[in-house]
Design a protein around this nucleic acid. Structure first.
Length: 191
DNA sequence: ACATCGATCTACT
DNA sequence: GTAGATCGATGTA
């Protein structure tokens, strides 16, 4: 069990997205530790029209321009929010969206947070997992090498990585930058 | 100051 | 498969 270091987030952003599969996202909350295994990610690159930062820095996306290994949390459609990990050195706005987890620790907390009991419906979507883990805007720009929110490697390897177009975007649909392990499709947001 | 639109989710048909 | 919720961020003036 090893927390990912800063150097991990300096790798090529597509490689970070692929290598995050199988790692464990951990949030230490007041109610207890909540964690899940990452099984779906999407890469967003600086010159990519689908990337929030492709048209310059705004108040919302400024975390993407910051140091690697920090969180970029944004809100969309009212109440919902999504979690990214920032990659690349300061000034280069790239990030990986975490889209799905397999629940591990704190499952009862997740069930309360989500108002759902079915395990497959707790974290199978970017806004579902933030609700389940209790991740909100106050974790925007949080250092992922700190003690509240981080990613650990327990040595688990995924077998075959599937590459697909990203979900919910209307541009750059030719880029196959959505990734999930072929053997774990029951836990992802869509097939 | 105002209009538009989401890197979504749920419920319903 | 499709519609409605929901509100802050963003762009335009």
């Amino acid at each position: 069990m090893r927390k990912l270091g800063r150097e991990f987030y300096l790798l090529d952003t597509v490689e970070v997205a692929q290598r995050l599969l199988g790692k464990i996202l951990v949030h230490c909350t007041d109610q207890g530790v909540v964690s899940g295994r990452i099984v779906e990610t999407e890469a967003y690159l600086r010159d990519d029209p689908a990337c929030h930062a492709s048209r310059g820095m705004t108040r919302r996306n400024k975390a993407m321009f910051g140091d690697p290994g920090h969180a970029y949390v944004y809100t969309t459609h009212g109440n919902r929010c999504c979690l990214n990990v920032v990659t690349q050195p300061q000034g280069i706005p790239e990030a990986v969206l975490i889209r799905a987890l397999i629940p591990l620790e704190g499952i009862e907390i997740m069930q309360v947070n989500r108002g759902r009991s079915c395990l497959e419906d707790l974290c199978s979507g970017p806004a579902k997992l933030t609700q389940a883990l209790g991740i909100t805007l106050d974790l925007n720009e949080e250092d992922l090498l700190g003690d509240r929110l981080f990613v650990v490697d327990d040595g688990t390897q995924v077998e075959t990585i599937v590459s697909k177009p990203r979900i919910g975007i209307r541009v750059a649909t030719d880029k196959l930058w959505r990734f999930y392990p072929a053997e774990l499709t029951r836990w992802v947001s869509k097939r």
